[in-house]
């Protein structure tokens, strides 16, 4: 009983950063950009989030804002490289992971391993006290709820605005979009930048809400899990919540199980999220035939006067 209550209560905290990063990646990939550098951008978001929290009067809001700003900058640089200079998206993405790790490793020393109080969960009398689901539904920090709002916003943006339509067209068929007078480069750059904001925010959340501390390389592959999550979600924002809940559930289970003292080797538990991600990838390939849902121009640079 208590196990279930706690597990449910902690699941959203683990799910939110994955959903946020996946949202950013969905925006990226819908425009045709494959950003494998999410892991590195998250790290920078986490560090900048912590720095601004500590240096700017312990304000979580400022931490989140500057964390996503870091994501905006890195997202823009990534976009500039792959969209304008048309670098290989795989190589650039992987390099961004190391860049993020290197930048935070170099700049972050003074702020590493400093515990912060970060953002606290809300408490609504009575509602939060409902057994089992009370804390799960009404006892999360504000950003968990904001994340859900973001999911709705991103969905509305992609499917209920002209800009969203144009952005999807750029990812599906840049030739057609271009012939219709849509500036392919501008949209992709925009998508990379906005996507970066979400990824940066996700990193700041990791530091300020989940871990409440900055540790070197603290993302621990979550950027990669988010990339797999996008495939699982078939590039649909609301499905990212399902995936986020799945992975968040697994991650939230680890400390719970450790606490209960169930005799499962610790490191096999730590391995679980990665095994689960692998399983999900295989499932997506077998069942969802994910290749069909992927934006057709994903990862392919566009040059108008390209003639073979």
């Amino acid at each position: 009983m208590e196990f279930l209550t706690n597990w449910l209560a902690f699941m959203p905290v683990f799910a939110a950063p994955l959903v946020l990063a996946a949202l950013g990646l969905i925006i990226n990939e819908r425009a045709g950009i494959l950003n494998l550098g999410a892991e590195g951008i998250m790290l920078c978001g986490a560090l900048i989030g912590i720095i601004s929290y500590i240096e700017l009067g312990e304000s979580s809001a400022l931490g989140f804002i500057f964390g996503s700003l870091a994501g905006v900058i890195l997202g823009f640089v990534f976009g500039f490289l792959v969209v304008v200079l048309r670098t290989n998206q795989v190589v650039t993405g992987i390099t961004f992971v190391i860049l993020g790790s290197g930048l935070t490793g170099l700049m972050g020393i003074p702020w590493v391993n400093k515990a912060v109080s970060g953002i606290t969960p809300i408490y609504i009398p009575h509602l939060t006290d409902i057994p089992i689901i009370g804390r799960f539904l009404f006892g999360q920090d504000i950003l968990v709820y904001v994340t859900i709002i973001f999911v709705v916003f991103v969905w509305l943006f992609l499917y209920r605005t002209r800009t969203g339509l144009e952005l999807r067209a750029v990812g599906e068929n840049p030739q057609a979009a271009d012939a219709n007078g849509i500036n392919v480069e501008a949209y992709r750059l925009l998508a990379a930048t906005i996507g970066g904001a979400f990824i940066g925010l996700s990193g700041a959340y990791l530091a300020l809400a989940m871990a409440k501390i900055f540790v070197l390389d603290m993302t621990q592959g979550r950027g990669w899990i988010a990339i797999a999550l996008v495939i699982f979600a078939r590039w649909m924002p609301w499905r990212a919540i399902i995936g986020g809940a799945l992975f968040g559930g697994i991650e939230a289970l680890i400390p719970r199980l450790k606490a209960t003292g169930v005799p499962i080797p610790q490191y096999y538990l730590e391995m679980a999220p990665y095994l689960a991600t692998l399983a999900v990838l295989i499932y997506a390939a077998l069942r969802l035939r994910s290749g069909q849902d992927a934006p057709k121009a994903l990862g392919i640079p566009y040059v108008r006067e390209d003639r073979k």
Partner: peptide, 12 residues
Amino acid sequence: ALVGLIQAIIVL
């Protein structure tokens, strides 16, 4: 992290 950073900058 320095070596990784240098590598990343040169690759980019």
